[in-house]
Design a protein around this nucleic acid. Structure first.
Lengths: 151, 151
DNA sequence: TCGCAACAGTTTCAATCGCAACAAGAAAGA
DNA sequence: TCTTTCTTGTTGCGATTGAAACTGTTGCGA
């Protein structure tokens, strides 16, 4: 009739998320003084090529105010440019500049390495099971990436 | 040579953590106007019986300033009492009052139900695999509960 | 015993956050 | 067309956060 915190799924996920975040944050923070929203916008734009703030928000799971502020910060660094969207004058097309793309490239390697170094502490079976389990949970929570339409 | 956000472990864990948190928060927020640190202190004290702020922090994985503020808030509600620690005058022994314990009991049921409702969306195999995978990752990150000393 | 480093907990401060209000534009309907 | 509603993105504001400084206490070594 009690609730053991260390067995409670929301608590466990939050602890894991924060622990991993702490291992990863130094990379983008110490290299370039980025914060997480900015790092995510950088990745989203590298993924998407050119996109609106809304697209970036959907792709990086971030609130529109975060996007707005992160975009401003990256713009001040001249890591991205805004161009008017011919189809919708409310939004602007965001694109990484060469400098922005270079920063992205500088970060991706170390980020992947750090992730790999964490996953290396798991056995191959555990690693695969983890990926599958997270996928199942994502599906259960409706987080799965909106799959390309069937057909 | 890219980094797909939706396959990046830190990102996935953070999204899952936030999604579950959003499903769970309304329970302690709407019932009693608690925030997460307060809810966690409540659980920690129910788990531990009587403990110092430091103990609560270790048991609920929270920064000492969070603990300090959450304890003050719960104290104002008269959900916990502070008594001088005879062994160390820097700290105080914190204990839930009857009202605090009642609130805890009111919350535990709905919280567990909500957790169960989420896990029910998974197959039994996925459920078990998830628990195991999270355990493995916790171990890899050094988060496993400090096991009682061997011998 | 004294002096000093380590520690528990609080407070201050600057940064960050998301809600809500807002402006400008798009979309839908009469 | 005109009006209303919805949407995109920005900004103001109050709340929350953790780092750092601080207070009072303990424990250790000279």
């Amino acid at each position: 009739m009690g609730l053991t915190l260390s067995e409670f799924l929301p608590y466990r996920l939050n602890c894991l998320s924060e622990a991993i975040s702490q291992e990863i944050r130094p990379i983008y923070r110490d290299h370039f003084g980025l914060n997480r929203p900015e790092w995510r916008v950088l990745v989203a734009l590298a993924d998407l090529g050119t996109a609106t703030a809304k697209d970036v928000g959907a792709h990086s799971a971030q609130h529109k105010t975060r996007i707005s502020r992160a975009v401003h910060a990256l713009e001040k660094r001249r890591w991205l440019t805004r161009e008017p969207d011919p189809n919708d004058r409310r939004s602007e097309m965001l694109t990484l500049t060469a400098a922005g793309h270079r920063a992205y490239c500088d970060l991706v390697g170390p980020m992947r390495d750090r992730e790999a170094r964490i996953l290396d502490r798991l056995s191959p079976e555990d690693r695969e099971a983890l990926g599958d389990a997270l996928g199942a949970l994502e599906a259960a929570l409706g987080l799965s990436s909106p799959k390309p339409p069937v057909r």
